[in-house]
Amino acid sequence: MLTATAILIDGLIEASYLFLVALGLTLIFGVMKILNVAHGSFYAFGAYASATAIGWWFASGFPDYGSFALMFAIAIGLGIIFGLLLEVGLLKRMYGKDEVIIVLVTFASFLMLEDVIIWIWGGNAYFAFEPYSLLGDIQFGTLFYSNYDLALIGLAVALAAGTWLLLNRTAKGRLLLAVIHDTEMAAAFGINVKRYFTVTFIIGATLGCLGGAVMAPKISVAPGIGVEVIVLAFAIVVIGGMGSIWGAIIGALVVGLARAAAVHLLPEVELFVIYAVMTLVLIFRPEGLFMRQKARKI
C-alpha cells in the first residue's frame, strides 16, 4: 500500500514535468508537423539559465519568492529567442521539404545548441536548490514529499486546463484547432497560417524551457540532460499520438507512472519499460492512443 502510494505520487511528479516538455513538443508537431529534436536543448537551456539566475537572485538578496516569477520570465524570454532564431531564422526556409528532412534540421540544431551550452556553462554541474527547500515538506503517512514537487503537479494541471480554455474558449484557439486539423484548408479560409506557426513555435519552445526552468531546483544541471529528456518526450508524444494535446497528458502519465513503478519495484527495467510501452503503442495503435487513422482515396 505504501509502495502503491509512493508510486502514484512519484509518478505524478515525474509526469508533470514530462508533460510540460511533451506539451510543447506535441503542440509544435500538431500545428507544424515538425518533430522537434531541438526541444531537448530548450529544456536544457531553460534548466541552465534558471540555475544560474536563481543563484544570482539569492546571492543578491532579492525576495525569495520572486525566484518563482524569475523562472517563468526566463522560460518566456528563452522561448521567444529560440522561436525567432529557429522558426523564423531556419525552419521557415524548410517548409515543404519531407517531414524526415525537417527532423534532421532540428537534429542539427540540437547538436549545435548542445555545444553552445558547453561554451556558455562549461562542463560542470549547477545546483539551485533554494526554491526547492523554500516551500518545505509535507507528510503522507510515513512518506515525505516536497511541496515544490506538489506545486509542479499543480502547474501541470493548470497548464493543461489553460491549454484547454485557450483552444476551446477563445477565437484564436479555435482557429489554431483548425490549423491543426487541416493546415491547407485553414490557409484556404484565410487564416494566416505562417503567423500561427511562429506563435506556436514560440509557445512550444517556452513550454520546453519552462520544463527545464522548474526542474533546475530539483536536479543537478549537467551536460546531457537535454539528450535524456528528448527521447522521453518522444516516447510520450508517440504514446499519446503525435500532435494530440490530450494524448500528451495520457502519455506523460503512462511514462511517469511506469517509470515510478519500475524504480520502486524493478529498477532494472526502468528505461526498458518506457520504450516497451512506446513500441507496443506503435504496433497496436500506430497513430497513438488518441488519434484517428486516415484513409486514402483513389
Partner: peptide
Amino acid sequence: AMLCLAFSMI
C-alpha cells in the same frame, strides 16, 4: 523512424 528509435532504446 520512431519505431526504429523505440527498438534501439529498448
